[in-house]
Design a protein around this nucleic acid. Structure first.
Ligand SMILES: [Mn+2]
Ligand SMILES: [Mn+2]
Ligand SMILES: [Zn+2]
Ligand SMILES: [Zn+2]
Lengths: 143, 143
DNA sequence: TTAATAATTGCAATTACGTCGCATTTATCT
DNA sequence: AGATAAATGCGACGTAATTGCAATTATTAA
C-alpha cells in the first residue's frame, strides 16, 4: 500500500527533483483541500514561500504529473492529479462556491465518443457545470 | 429573415446603445472567425480601437447577450452568442489550434441530468475537448 | 560526517493583463 | 445644423505572473 506521501516522494525522485520544505508544504496543502487557485495557494503559504517559487513549484508539479489544472469560472485551480485521485469533474455553486466532484463513467465514454466522431485523438477534456446548490436555492426563495 | 447584422443592430437599439465604428468593427471580426481571445481581438484591431475600449465594448456585448465567453485552454475566448449561433461546445487541436464545434443534444441533456442528480439548478456549463486532429495525427506519424 | 556540486529558492525588477477617471469626440434626436 | 448624452482615447494605476541572478539548500560521494 502506497500512501500519498510515498507516491509524492517517488515522483520527485523519479524525475531527479529534490524534496524541499517548499515543495512538501505545497503538496500538503493540496492533499486535504478542494482545488486551490494560485492566489489561494500564495495566501495560504504566506511569507513562508516566495510567490515566484510557488509558481515555479506548481509548474514542475504539473510537468511531473503531481497536480493538474481544472477550469473553474474562467480561471484555473490546482488539484492532485490522477496519480492520487480518480479522474473527475466539478459542479460549482455560483453563490457559495461549493465544489462537488462528478464521477461518471458514462460521461467519460461519451466524451471520447465525441472525439472519435470528429476524428480527433483525445488527450484531455474539461467539463464544468455552474449553478446553484440546494442550500443556495432555498435561501433565494426565502429572500 | 433577419441577418446577423440586423440582429446586431436590433440588440443595440433595444438596449439604447449607439452603433459606433468600434462596435461594428468588433462585431464584424467575430462574425466570420473562430472564437477570439481578448489578445487576439486587440491585435486584430491594431491602433484603430484603444485597448480600454475593446474591453468595454466586449463587456457590453456580453451584458446584452451579443457574445458569450467560452473556455479554451485555461483562458476564455469570445464568440457570438446563442442569439446568432446555436449553443455548442468545442474540440480543439493541440497542434494546429483547429477548432471544431460540437453540437450534441445528447450531451446537453446529460449535463442537465448531472446537475439534477446533485440537486443543482444548472445555469451554465462548459465542455472542452483537446487532442490532435486527423491531419496533425498523420503528420506526427510521418515525422 | 563533511565537502563539493548542482538544484532550488528569494529577491528585485520587469512584463502582461485588465481597470479607471477624465477630457475629447461622436452618435443620436430634435 | 445644434444640443445633449453616450462612447472613446489617453494616461495612470493595480494586480498577476515571469525572469535573471545571487544566496541558500539538498544531494552525492569522499
Ligand atoms: Mn476535484
Ligand atoms: Mn463556436
Ligand atoms: Zn451554494
Ligand atoms: Zn491539428
Amino acid at each position: 500500500m502506497s500512501t500519498f506521501q510515498d507516491n509524492f516522494i517517488n515522483i520527485l525522485k523519479t524525475n531527479g527533483l529534490s524534496i524541499t520544505r517548499q515543495r512538501q508544504l505545497l503538496f500538503d496543502l493540496l492533499q486535504d483541500q478542494d482545488p486551490l487557485s494560485m492566489n489561494e495557494l500564495t495566501e495560504l503559504v504566506g511569507t513562508t514561500i516566495d510567490r515566484a517559487s510557488v509558481y515555479r513549484i506548481i509548474a514542475t508539479f504539473e510537468e511531473t504529473g503531481i497536480v493538474r489544472r481544472i477550469s473553474i469560472g474562467w480561471k484555473f485551480k490546482i488539484e492532485l492529479s490522477e496519480a492520487f485521485v480518480a479522474h473527475h469533474h466539478h459542479l460549482t455553486c455560483l453563490s457559495c462556491q461549493l465544489v462537488v466532484p462528478i464521477n461518471q463513467e458514462k460521461l467519460e465514454s461519451f466524451i471520447s465518443e465525441l472525439a472519435d466522431i470528429n476524428n480527433f485523438q483525445p488527450i484531455q477534456h474539461q467539463v464544468e457545470i455552474q449553478g446553484y446548490c440546494q442550500r443556495c436555492q432555498a435561501n433565494r426563495n426565502i429572500a
